[in-house]
């Protein structure tokens, strides 16, 4: 399985994104990070640490579970029903600039669900989207404001982000469909 990002690249991408955030948002105090479960949460935590280093500010940090906002609850016939996890947003999002964080941007449906979930918590001044990998193939008119790596992929391929916090290692892998790939 080809590795497209190693620990060094992931950490440099997250540091560059943190710099871009400070560059684009003058009022750092208005910012808050919200990670989409599962892997958006550790990514948001790392960005918070980077921002602390660059701007010397503590950015509020939240975790969002979008399971209840999915559009396919009674539609899929196979595959696991996603486990419902806790949403924790321990601050008011009203009038804040929310930095929404996810690992992979693909169809855009997860982000659509996350936007619906977020506005149920209040009325943020703005929402900006941060993703570690943008692999294309959008099904909705959604784009990211900060991208760690643009990764052109074919539809049958799958992109796996692994992080130390959830998977024991930092890497981004691209997986070819097993049957169609000649060795």
């Amino acid at each position: 399985m080809p590795v497209v990002m190693d620990p060094g690249r992931i950490s440099r991408a997250l540091m560059r994104i943190a710099h871009e955030i400070v560059e684009r948002n003058r009022e750092v105090d208005e910012l808050a990070l919200v990670g989409i479960r599962t892997r958006g949460v550790p990514l948001a935590r790392r960005l918070a640490a980077n921002l602390q280093e660059i701007a010397e500010r503590e950015i509020p940090l939240g975790a969002l579970d979008i399971t209840l906002y999915r559009d396919d609850l009674m539609r899929h016939t196979v595959g696991p029903q996603p486990l419902l996890r806790h949403t924790e947003i321990p601050f008011s999002i009203d009038d804040r600039r929310i930095l929404l964080v996810d690992d992979v941007l693909y169809t855009g449906r997860t982000v659509r669900a996350a936007l619906d979930a977020l506005v149920d918590f209040g009325r943020p001044r703005a929402i900006q989207l941060i993703v570690l990998v943008d692999r294309g193939h959008r099904e909705l008119p959604i784009r990211a404001d900060y991208v760690g790596k643009n990764l052109p992929t074919a539809l049958p391929e799958s992109v796996q982000v692994r992080l130390v916090e959830t998977d024991g290692a930092d890497e981004v892998l691209i997986q070819q469909p097993a049957a169609e790939e000649p060795a």
Binding site: D71, P80, R85, T110, A113, Q160, T166, D167
Partner: peptide, 21 residues
């Protein structure tokens, strides 16, 4: 919704934890 890889359903699914009735 987003038809990603099985690994994307999280560590709970990977560890075989039940996710449906």
């Amino acid at each position: 919704m987003t038809p990603r890889t099985p690994a994307d359903t999280g560590p709970a699914a990977a560890s075989g934890q039940l996710s449906r009735l």
